[in-house]
Design a protein around this nucleic acid. Structure first.
Length: 384
RNA sequence: CUCUGGGGAUGAUAAG
C-alpha cells in the first residue's frame, strides 16, 4: 500500500487527477493515507469543491484529512469555513492549531491568532515560529521579539524568523546582532541577512555573505540574482542568470520582471517563451508579472494570450492573478472585460477593488471609480 | 528511520 500511495502521490504532483482516481480505485487495501493523498491532489490542483465532496463522503477522516481541508479553505480566503471545520473536528493536534493560527495571521487577524496560540496546549517550536512570523508580517515587531524571548527552546528556524522580522523593518543592526549570536548558520540564514543588506544598498556586503554560504541551492542563487536586480545591477543579474547551475520558476520570473522593469517588455515576453520551451511551468507570480508587462506595453494582444494560458492553468482562480487581469484589461482599454473578470473573483481584496478603480481611471470613468469606495466598504474592505 | 496535513530564506499584483 505504501508504494501504491507513493505512485498516487506522483500522479497528484503531475496534476493527473483522472489517473490518480483510477489508481486509487485499484489499490487493494487503501489506507487512510491513500485517501488523504487523493484529497490533497484535488486541493493542489485547484479543485477545492471536489476535495470537499470527497471529504464529506469519507467515513472517518483522520486529523490530517481535517487539517488539509481546513488549510485549503484558508488558502482560498474562506477563513470562516476553515474555522467552522476546525471547531467541528473531532480532534486537533499541534499541526491543526498551527494551521489555524497561520490562517488568522494571513488575514491580518492577529488577535484571534494569538488567542488560539495561547489556547494551544503543547506548543512545539513550529507553533512558536508561526506566531513570531504572524507578528512580523503584521508589523508587530516588538510583540514578535517579546514572544521570541519567551520561547523556551529556540532553534535555528525561530532565529531566522526573528531576523527576518528585523530585516523586513530595515533594522540592519539588530538583524546583524542576532545573526552574530547564532552558533549554527545554514544558507537560509545567510539569505535572510543578504536581504537585509540588499535593502540598504549594501551590495558588496551581501555578495560576501553569498560567498560564505555553506551550500548554495537554487534559492541562494535566486537571492543573489534579486540582490542585483533590486539594486539596479541589470548586467550582473543577467550574468548570474546565465551562470547559475540551475534555474527554477522563481529565477525565470525574477529575470522576466527585471527585463520589464528595464523597459524591455518585448525581451521579457521572449524570455517567458524560452522558459516554457525549457519545460519550466509558469506559476501565479509569473502570470502576474507577465500581465503587468502586457499592461505596461498596453498590448491587448499579448495580454489576451496570457489570459488564454492562465485559463489552462490551475492558477485561473487565484485572486492575485485575477486582480492583475483586471488591471491589464483596464490599462488596455477594455473596461467591460476588466469588469467581467472582476465578477469572477470569489474573494475580492483591496487590490481587486483598486485594480477595478484603476481600470475605470484608465478609461476615464472617474465617477464610476469613486463609486467603488462605498462598494468595497460595504464588503468589509477598508481603503488604505 | 523519505506514503498524506503545519513553522524560517528568493520572484509578483493598485495609485504615485
Amino acid at each position: 500500500t505504501i508504494s501504491a500511495n507513493a505512485l498516487l502521490g506522483a500522479f497528484s504532483k503531475k496534476g493527473k487527477l483522472t489517473e490518480a482516481r483510477e489508481h486509487l480505485e485499484k489499490i487493494a487495501n487503501p489506507s487512510p493515507v491513500s485517501f488523504n493523498i487523493m484529497l490533497r491532489a484535488y486541493i493542489e490542483n485547484g479543485h477545492l469543491h471536489k476535495a470537499r465532496n470527497m471529504f464529506d463522503k469519507m467515513s472517518n477522516p483522520d486529523v490530517a484529512a481535517w487539517t488539509q481541508v481546513i488549510q485549503a479553505y484558508s488558502d482560498h480566503g474562506e477563513l470562516d469555513e476553515a474555522r467552522k471545520l476546525f471547531d467541528r473536528a473531532p480532534n486537533r493536534d499541534s499541526v491543526a492549531w498551527t494551521v489555524m493560527v497561520t490562517a488568522y495571521a494571513q488575514k491580518g487577524n492577529i488577535h484571534e491568532a494569538r488567542t488560539l496560540f495561547d489556547r494551544m496546549l503543547d506548543k512545539d517550536p513550529k507553533a512558536w515560529t508561526a506566531m513570531i512570523k504572524a507578528y512580523s508580517r503584521n508589523e508587530r515587531l516588538l510583540d514578535a521579539r517579546r514572544l521570541f524571548d519567551q520561547m523556551p527552546v529556540k532553534d535555528m528556524m525561530s532565529r531566522t524568523s526573528m531576523i527576518t522580522a528585523y530585516a523586513r523593518k530595515g533594522d540592519l543592526e539588530e538583524a546583524k546582532s542576532l545573526f552574530d549570536e547564532c552558533k549554527e548558520r545554514d544558507s537560509v540564514l545567510y539569505t535572510v541577512m543578504m536581504k537585509a543588506y540588499s535593502q540598504h544598498g549594501k551590495v558588496r556586503e551581501a555578495k560576501a555573505l553569498f560567498d560564505e554560504m555553506p551550500y548554495k541551492n537554487v534559492l541562494c542563487w535566486n537571492s543573489l540574482l534579486t540582490l542585483y536586480v533590486k539594486n539596479g545591477y541589470f548586467e550582473e543579474a543577467k550574468d548570474v542568470f546565465l551562470d547559475m547551475p540551475s534555474r527554477d520558476v522563481v529565477s525565470w520570473t525574477a529575470m522576466i520582471k527585471a527585463y520589464g522593469d528595464n523597459k524591455q517588455g518585448k525581451e521579457a515576453i521572449k524570455l517567458y517563451h524560452r522558459m516554457e520551451g525549457e519545460g519550466v511551468q509558469p506559476d501565479h507570480v509569473t502570470f502576474v508579472c507577465m500581465l503587468e508587462i502586457c499592461a505596461e506595453l498596453a498590448s491587448l494582444q499579448q495580454g489576451e494570450a496570457v489570459h488564454r494560458r492562465i485559463r489552462r492553468s490551475k492558477y485561473r482562480n487565484f485572486t492575485t492573478v485575477l486582480n492583475a487581469l483586471v488591471h491589464m484589461y483596464g490599462k488596455c482599454g477594455c473596461l467591460s472585460e476588466a469588469k467581467a473578470v472582476f465578477t469572477e473573483i470569489r474573494n475580492p481584496d483591496e487590490f481587486s477593488y483598486t485594480a477595478l478603480m484603476s481600470a475605470c481611471y484608465h478609461n476615464e470613468q472617474y465617477w464610476e471609480a469613486l463609486q467603488m469606495v462605498p462598494h468595497m466598504v460595504q464588503q468589509g474592505i477598508l481603503p488604505n
